[in-house]
Design a protein around this nucleic acid. Structure first.
Length: 281
DNA sequence: CTCCTGTCCTGCCGGC
DNA sequence: TGCCGGCAGGACAGGA
């Protein structure tokens, strides 16, 4: 589920509950996620005060006042929800980790498929560790543009769709937004990544940024299970141009008036790609 | 190196 | 109604 917009939506939801507040207790109900939560997780974070929250790609980083930090990835099916101080709370199925704040509210991590991750790091070292040390640029950052993207694609013979899913090329793009950005940039997902022209790389970088920004503004996309931290659904799924729209007619392209629906679904490296072969060349 | 396949886990949906 | 296969937003290991 969660790609950059959903993770950023989640981070914005938990930030006011976390930042500047003390965690009274961390309850780990299940430690056997995709990567096991370490035994010391609760002890290090309980009775510790949160200094700040951050996002890098699809990861959230929560920094503590004493220099510790923890890394949080929502996997495919994870989400965070906030239960207010006055509300009762009974753990539901797949509620794996509960942060009980000193002031009363709880932040709950629910993840049916358990592909999510939570692990410990430090404020000084997390950026140089595993996924982050080789991670590509932030697509919403000032430094992301066509030339930067083109440089990351140089020499790559994989198709551009799969290249966009590679977090070393650009951070935070997943299956939905890769499809949507390629559609907006009118680039065929089967094209070799290294063969894009400078102009196409410009268009693609702009499309990635635009799609992600609009998705964040819409509170993310809710396909099956994603919800914002207050339980509201995101609504960017209503704005998809091609994703999950196989057999429909896309808007604003040369095929618009045809009887034959233009949006196709193909499989690339085992994952669905949706695109319009008329618009995307 | 690069690239592709299989795997982790649960839930849901469509077909029979 | 019930069972079964296929599929799902991600990331990583291992092999070619």
């Amino acid at each position: 589920m969660p790609e950059l917009p959903e993770v950023e939506t989640t981070r914005r939801g938990i930030d006011p509950v976390f930042t500047g507040q003390r965690i009274a207790q961390v309850i780990v109900r299940r430690h056997d996620l995709r990567v096991a939560i370490p035994p010391s997780f609760s002890a290090i974070l309980s009775n510790n005060t949160v200094q700040s929250t951050h996002r890098r790609g699809k990861y959230m980083i929560v920094c503590m006042r004493d220099g510790a930090a923890f890394i949080w990835h929502l996997g495919m099916s994870g989400r965070a929800s906030i239960h207010g101080a006055g509300q009762g709370y009974t753990p539901e199925k797949h509620d794996h980790v509960i942060f009980e704040m000193e002031t009363g509210p709880r932040i709950v991590f629910n993840d049916p498929r358990r592909f999510g991750m939570m692990y410990l790091s430090t404020q000084d070292s997390w950026q140089t560790e595993k996924p982050f040390s080789a991670m590509g640029p932030e697509p919403l950052g000032n430094g992301f543009n066509g030339p930067v993207l083109a440089a990351r694609l140089t020499g790559k013979r994989v198709n551009i769709k799969n290249a966009l899913l590679d977090q070393r090329v650009v951070a935070g793009v997943g299956n939905i937004y890769a499809c949507e950005a390629l559609y907006e940039a009118a680039i065929n997902p089967l094209r070799a990544a290294g063969d894009l022209s400078a102009a196409e790389a410009d268009n693609l970088a702009a499309a990635i940024r635009g799609v992600l920004e609009r998705a964040i503004a819409a509170g993310g996309s809710s396909l099956k299970d994603f919800k914002q931290t207050d339980g509201q659904l995101g609504y960017f799924q209503h704005s998809f141009s091609v994703y999950d729209r196989e057999g429909q007619v896309c808007s604003g392209c040369a095929c618009g008036g045809r009887e034959e629906p233009c949006i196709k679904r193909i499989v690339q490296s085992g994952r669905s790609t949706f695109y319009c072969p008329v618009k995307q060349r």
